[in-house]
Nucleic acid binder design. Sequence first.
DNA 1: GTGAAAGCGCTAACAT
DNA 2: ATGTTAGCGCTTTCAC
Lengths: 340, 340
Amino acid sequence: MKPKATLKQIAKELNVSVSTVSKALSNSPEISEPTKIKIQEFAKLKNYKPNNIAINLKNRSTKTIGVIIPNILNPFFAKVFSGIEKMANEKGYNVITCISNESLKKEIHTMDMLSNGTIDGFILSISEETQKQQEFKHFKEIISEGIPIVMFDRISDEVNCDKVIVDDFDSSVNAVNHLITLGCRKIALLTSIDNLSVAKLRAQGYVKALNDNDIAINKDLIIRTDNPDEFDFRLKDLIDNQEIDGIFGLDEHASTMAMKMAIKKGIKIPEELSVIGFADGVWSRRLTPSLSTISQHGIEIGEEAAKMLIEKLESKDEEYAYRTTVIKTELRQRDSTRKL
Amino acid sequence: MKPKATLKQIAKELNVSVSTVSKALSNSPEISEPTKIKIQEFAKLKNYKPNNIAINLKNRSTKTIGVIIPNILNPFFAKVFSGIEKMANEKGYNVITCISNESLKKEIHTMDMLSNGTIDGFILSISEETQKQQEFKHFKEIISEGIPIVMFDRISDEVNCDKVIVDDFDSSVNAVNHLITLGCRKIALLTSIDNLSVAKLRAQGYVKALNDNDIAINKDLIIRTDNPDEFDFRLKDLIDNQEIDGIFGLDEHASTMAMKMAIKKGIKIPEELSVIGFADGVWSRRLTPSLSTISQHGIEIGEEAAKMLIEKLESKDEEYAYRTTVIKTELRQRDSTRKL
DNA sequence: GTGAAAGCGCTAACAT
DNA sequence: ATGTTAGCGCTTTCAC
């Protein structure tokens, strides 16, 4: 194992000063061609790589973004993450990733660990526990320390920062309207993530669409909980005892469990029951029948968030207004909904 | 936005020297109680956090692990990643993640970018392109620079380093034996990732199991390709024209597409056809019927890889033998295979 | 008990 | 064209 080459060593071996080496390697015109070439070749020979840590210390910037994701096993977050990583890389930034596991404590701990010079800014989606407890002090503190934050998907109006969101409300109105156009009148609203801000917005969209179409809200067709087990239990009851012709699922668990139970009961999809759900990733296509989805363009969300953060980091403006970008969803009609 | 507190500033404001502040904050017994308390309280007031970059420079260690993952949208890798992140965090390490996107060039570029002091070691799974081209020079170089690597899942025998793998061969023998026990005799072998080392091992297991049970290999029941479109095309042909009673899928695309096409053709699963596939994540449970899988314990793999790397980083032994850990898989019987 | 000084590896303003 | 110096923020040895 060769010892790592440093400017100092190279300088000594070549009998020049450290600054000469530094300048030669950065191709400064101050240095004469012959010495430049000599130094550059020697450096290559020694496999010299400038120590990034030293450069970071000097620049007081790390070109590194801290990303905090509630749960990487959720394909939506995986997509957003890959968008962030892609954009960051293009712009020459690295990405330190932490998974909050929906825990407020881990979120706070992570931000504390990284906000000491390790990263230049954060991109994050608020953990479930944080949203439940409405505890946002840690975000505000970080921002007041001059570290910019970009929030995506699960945001808080209480925190002043850049945001990238999905038009959850409009998407839902649109999706439920689509079900109604297909002839559905008894549309169930199902969610197992009711504690999240996005679920609330989506549920409001459902109400709006029904109202607009003069369809009465039937509470018996609505399951809103944040407990998957309770959800499954109530879902079974709903499928067994209620008559429905449409399902609007606010999360993947809700829509897929509903399809599974309906198929088990012998209900024909889409002939007797149309299903639309929020979902990401490749799996909705693999179901039989494939699931019609509201797709959230996670990669774009990630790219946009990274772009926003990097722009902020690289702008010298102290006065930089906070922006909120909305990424439109797309209704992907597959085989769980009838064709018009 | 408050200016960041540094030792120097605190020292000046308190009319003491930098080293006194440093010692006081690290609770050194050299400093008298009163000054210690004064300094510590003032530091807390100013929200002082020691600059990590400076500490890294001093220690010539970053407590950061570089992770390179071929594709985070694959739930297996997402699981491994979450295992790595969890263990790293417990041990006080951060994780810089890059996605190679199955590209050799990106893999090389990433390793080059990070091996300049940014990270202490790597955990990675080799990209598809790298495996195809059998190009491993960059790994060897990094190792010769003294930066340890732990490879997982997709590894190369050519590279000398710690490894964490799955017992792909044995798992396959076991899974195919299970199908045979269920009475299957015409078992299809399906894969759309045939270029990967793991697929080759899994295919060998299939052959072994058939041989052991004196079942002749029927080439018409085997699809091995690395092109999903070609796979789908050949799969349709196979389902339409061959008689099969079992399917062994080496990747998620293969098993799920096979189930989808079989259901479409009216074949009853599991009554007429049993399906087992390698798969991770929650989705195999959501299919109808739910898919019986060989589950790879991705989280454990990640945890083990992180543990290995950190042990290596923290051991002063120059002579540290390379280890290969095998994580056993588990056959999860669900509804796509008959019960005995 | 406190402080001065050196040094981690690098850059850049300022000599020579 | 090359070298000297200072400094990024911190720790640590050595003086006082």
